[in-house]
Structures are given as structure tokens and as C-alpha cells.
Design a binder for these strands. Structure first.
Lengths: 230, 230
DNA sequence: GCCTTCCTTCGGCCGGCGCCGAAGCGTCCC
DNA sequence: GGGACGCTTCGGCGCCGGCCGAAGGAAGGC
């Protein structure tokens, strides 16, 4: 009766559910209660929303004791939501109302995670440095070159499993309006940078910060200057 | 207040508006009245929906006399809608209720346009044949090879302008579940096939048919067998 | 066992939104 | 000019769906 497109879109069309999904873009699993408090609704309300999102295939759930953990179902879902957000945000230039908000936004614009890979200025700079060094081909979509694969595995120490997930994928950055590296390679890279302590999460949100070690490492590895990381 | 993601998604969350967008995926401009009749709503209702979609940036309008022509705003919008549809359709296996519906669906699955490029089995076969012949690279997203560009320009007779639109792009086919060629190259190819009379539109919808000339041409050009076109 | 914590289910309320028909306006045709 | 046609605006109606609080499991700590 009502087209699948509409049924799917209606999942994201509610403010509270959309807020949940945006929060979950940090790639972590949240409990139902955390989401409820975050969005400012009653636990009962959140519970019903989560049930809908799970049934719609957007979220995956996992019960641990009395907690209901929930996360985005697949990387693909995260990418889809990011992609829609790019379009959605394009038409709404929202000025910052508070200093606190402006500071938080600035941190997000500087460096953040986009589900499981890097985004913001940092993500774009890293991506472009990789392209400049011939590690990434940029002709019509991204490609990982042979040198790029070797670089990731030996220099970065990432392991690129042979899963069904696309190796590289271009994800349009909603602050920079330019693509950054996503896909399995983007995720592996981000994971290693975290593992080496080169980037650390700021507070509870998606924003991250480059550590002094990270600044040195990224300079040696990709030639990124301090200005690229500011 | 309510997140941009939700405001955007709500545009597609209504059955009638979603029906409009799906219809417009044929790449043509429809009048407000045509859309109203197609979706089975009053003209007044359609008018209001169209106004919302235009304001939301999904549709572009053009007034000609007493007609209000409307089409998807950009190729990017079409791709976004297609992409969401892939995900939306995944969770809804809808059996055909009528013979007429089944025949129409079969024609759509065989060959159709996806906004301005080819889709369905035909679109996927063409894409894969191009890849097999080294015209298209498939490593992590599509790339047009040098031979591919030359082939398009001299063999097919397509002109690839230097616009801002990506040259090639992979568009996930919602019937085949495999990618087909989109982007500027996909559009140019599709346009030439129409221009040569190799494919013609069936009825008023998105489905197309390969003509006898087209069968010969596609065999010579890409080695496609009659089985590929069935 | 008892209490706390986390989650879910159930009613009930309320606002928003999609629908229509009537009326009005602009365009085109004769 | 007159009439047909396409579209839009406006009121009014009805329903869907998001919200909450209360009540009831289920898990965990003591």
C-alpha cells in the first residue's frame, strides 16, 4: 500500500528517532536509557522508538543483563544516514546560539569519527594526503592502490580482512563538503590510530583530538603539518 | 529544534510524496496534474505536496503556461532516492497481486532507466561487459579507464563534458542487488542508446525495451548475447 | 528474600498532517 | 469576450502517531 520508501523514511522522519541515529553515528553501542536521557524523552517513549528502528533494520540490539544495548545495524546504515544528512544539512544553515555550542561544533569540524572512520578536517586532510602520495586513486570514486594496501598493512599496521564490505568508499563530509575515506580501509586506519593513541575521543561525543604522538606520527607517515591538524 | 535529518526524511515519509518521487525517477518532468492522477489524490493535495518537495530542495519546478512542470532537482537527488530505496525495499518482499502487475514488474526488472542511466538486468549486464573489456575499473568503486573514455567517445559517440558531476558512479541496482553504471558517463551512454534507437521506452513508465537494432549493436559493441537482453 | 535499576506494555491525551471540495486566479483556445 | 482547463488557496474533517505516567516484569546487588 504505502511505498517502502515512505515506510523507511518515516523511521527517520521523527525528531527523537533521528536524534538517536545521529548519536549512534559515533559507532558505539548505547543503552536504551542513555538514548532516552540524551534525547530528553521518557524511557517508555525511547523503548518504543528503539523497537521500531530495530524492526526497520536500522539498529541491531544486544541484551546484556537488564541492559538493552543498541547500535547501528551495519556500516552501510551509517553511511546511508551520513549521506542523507549531507543533503539534509545543506538546506539549513544553523547559527550557533551558545558559546558552548560553538566550541563543540568547532571541535567536531576539526576532527571526529563518522561511525568507524575519520571525518572532519582531519579526515579530509588524511584522505587527500593519501591521494597525493599515490596510496589512493581518486578517479570517479576511491581506489586503494597497491602501494596503498602495502602502506596500510606495513606502515600503519592495519589488517585488511577479506570481508564483503567494500575496501574503500568515499563518504561525503558534511562539514568539509569534500569526500573522506570510508569503507574497510578507512575503518582499519581509524582503529589503528586509536590503538596507537594518536587520536583520542573528546568527552562523550564523536569529536576526537590528535595527541602530540599523533601529530608526530601523522607528519612522518603522511607529511601532515600542524596546520593540517588545527 | 527538530534535527535536519528528520525534517528531510519527513519529506519522503509520506506515501503520496514518495510515490511522486518514485515516478519522477524516470528522469522526466511531470505536470502537477499528472502526478495527482498517478498517485490517486486530488489536485489540491498534489499541489501542496509538490510545494513542500520543491521547498525541501528535492524537486525543481518550471512553469509553462498553465502547467507546472516538476522534476527531480539534480542527478544527486535521484541517486540518493535510489540508494534509500535499495535499503527500503530490502526489508519488504512484496509478492505480485495481479498478472498485470507481474508483467510490469518483469519488464522493469529486465530493463529500465534509473533517472538518466540504465538499470535492471540490462544495466548490470552492460556494466559488467564494460568491466570485462577493461573499459571500467571496479576496484572499490568504479573508474573509467583510458580505453573506456575513448570507447565512449568514438565507438558510442558520447560526449563527456567537464561538468562538476562525477564521471562514473556505482549505483546499486534494487532488483539485481549489484551495481550498475551511473554518473555522467552512465547518463551519456544511456542517452546515446536512446538516440540511436537501440532502446525505447515501454509505455509511460521507466521500463525500456531493446530493439532489434539495439540487440545487434550491443552484440557488436559489448559482446552481449540475446540471453543477456532477455 | 527484598530493594533498586532498567526496561517494557498499556491507556489516554493531544497535536499535527494528509485528505477533500469549494472557490478563485491565471492561461489558453475559439 | 467567453468558456474550458490547470493549478492554488482555504476551511474543515479525521486519523495517525508521539508523548507521558502508571504498572508490571526481569536482572542484579545486598
Amino acid at each position: 500500500m504505502t511505498p517502502p520508501l515512505a515506510r523507511f523514511a518515516s523511521l527517520l522522519a521523527d525528531g527523537t528517532r533521528a536524534t538517536f541515529c545521529m548519536a549512534l553515528l559515533d559507532g558505539r553501542a548505547w543503552t536504551a536509557g542513555e538514548l532516552a536521557r540524551y534525547a530528553g524523552v521518557a524511557a517508555s517513549t525511547a523503548s518504543e522508538h528503539i523497537t521500531l528502528l530495530v524492526a526497520g533494520g536500522l539498529l541491531a540490539e544486544e541484551h546484556q543483563g537488564r541492559h538493552r544495548y543498541v547500535r547501528l545495524a551495519t556500516p552501510r546504515v551509517a553511511e546511508l544516514i551520513e549521506e542523507i544528512s549531507v543533503y539534509a544539512d545543506a538546506g539549513s544553515p544553523v547559527p550557533h546560539k551558545s558559546l558552548r555550542g560553538a566550541v563543540a561544533s568547532e571541535a567536531m569540524a576539526r576532527a571526529r569519527t563518522c561511525y568507524d572512520h575519520l571525518a572532519g578536517r582531519l579526515g579530509v586532510r588524511v584522505t587527500e594526503a593519501m591521494a597525493a602520495r599515490g596510496l589512493l586513486g581518486t578517479e570517479g570514486g576511491f581506489t586503494l592502490t597497491g602501494r596503498g594496501r602495502e602502506w596500510l598493512e606495513s606502515e600503519v599496521g592495519a589488517t585488511l580482512g577479506g570481508g564483503r564490505r567494500p575496501l574503500v568508499r568515499a563518504c561525503l563530509d558534511w562539514t568539509e563538503r569534500r569526500p573522506h575515506l570510508a569503507g574497510a580501509a578507512g575503518a582499519a586506519l581509524c582503529q589503528r590510530l586509536h590503538g596507537r593513541g594518536w587520536v583520542v575521543r573528546i568527552g562523550t561525543q564523536r569529536a576526537v583530538r590528535v595527541t602530540p604522538d599523533g601529530a608526530t606520527g601523522l607528519r612522518d607517515l603522511l607529511g601532515l603539518s600542524p596546520a593540517d591538524l588545527a
